[in-house]
Amino acid sequence: MRIALKLSLIFILAIQCKSVEENKQSENDWVETQKSRDYFDYAVYIQKHPKSKNVEEALSEYLFLRDSVAGFLGCGKYNTSLSFVDEEKVLFDDELKSIDSLSFITFEYLKNGIPNVSPHKYNVQIPQSKMWDSISKVHFDILFYDKPFPIKSLKLALSEVSDGINSYKNYLSNKWYRLPYNKLTNEKKNGIDELNDSRFSFFDFSQMKGKRMILPTTSEFDINEEDSEQ
């Protein structure tokens, strides 16, 4: 009985320590992110820390900086749209999904693309290697049609999607290096991060008064990906 109690206390303390460390990392990253005038950096912060108390401010700064960029084309043919229905459901590419299913759906979508349609892949050089492989092109467009933004649902949904992206990172790590992501050297981790940490885009369509936006079929992401393939 005493052993079980001790193990429970150790487990609780480990969780608390991990939470403190994550909060510390989140705040350190936020200090650095605030120095940036590049809206992509705020999207990266939100993807890395979707539960942070700074998400709302990061989103506001992202939209402000993004909207100041002339000729911005964020939506694209390899992008997947998410819009909110209520606190438990979202539209994922216009299909109704529960928020708690998004982690699995995201991982499968990144890994396999759309079955019988397209894998949505492009070729990259494996970090710290001379070998090449294909990875997912997919980005996630988070669309808002109402104000105030549903921050509570947003954090839940983005946490699930981020978990799915992290699972995809782990999949690539095992595929490329035969090791889980958390066992990699910092150089290899950073290489995988650079390929996967900019998968979020945000769009405020609340001024459309309930009308749904038809997204364009080209994007700056497509241009960047075509360059990387050459």
Rank of each mutant, 00 (worst) to 15 (best):
S26I: 06
K169T: 04
A70L: 09
S81N: 08
V124R: 00
L73F: 12
D227Q: 13
L195Q: 13
V44I: 15
L195P: 10
G164F: 04
Y177T: 01
S26K: 02
P115H: 10
D67F: 04
T106C: 02
E226W: 15
F202D: 02
N196I: 10
E57P: 06
M1I: 05
F11Q: 14
D133E: 09
S167Q: 15
K18H: 03
S206N: 07
Y78P: 01
L215D: 02
N170T: 03
Q47Y: 04
A4F: 08
T106S: 05
F92E: 02
G71Q: 08
L96I: 11
F149V: 07
Y171Q: 01
Q128L: 00
K53P: 02
D133K: 04
V20F: 14
W132A: 11
D93M: 05
V69I: 09
I223M: 08
S101A: 10
G210I: 00
R66F: 11
K24E: 12
D38F: 13
S228T: 09
K211T: 13
N190V: 03
Q34I: 07
N79S: 13
N182D: 10
S101G: 06
L82E: 02
L5P: 02
R199E: 08
M131E: 15
S103R: 07
L102F: 00
M208D: 07
S136F: 03
F202Y: 11
G71S: 04
I165P: 03
I151S: 05
I46N: 01
Y62V: 01
S103T: 05
I12E: 11
K48W: 09
F140N: 01
N112T: 15
N196D: 12
F40V: 13
N54K: 10
S219Q: 11
P119G: 03
E56R: 06
Q34Y: 05
E32I: 10
Q125K: 12
E187P: 02
G113W: 05
I142W: 01
E220K: 11
C75F: 07
T106Q: 01
L65F: 07
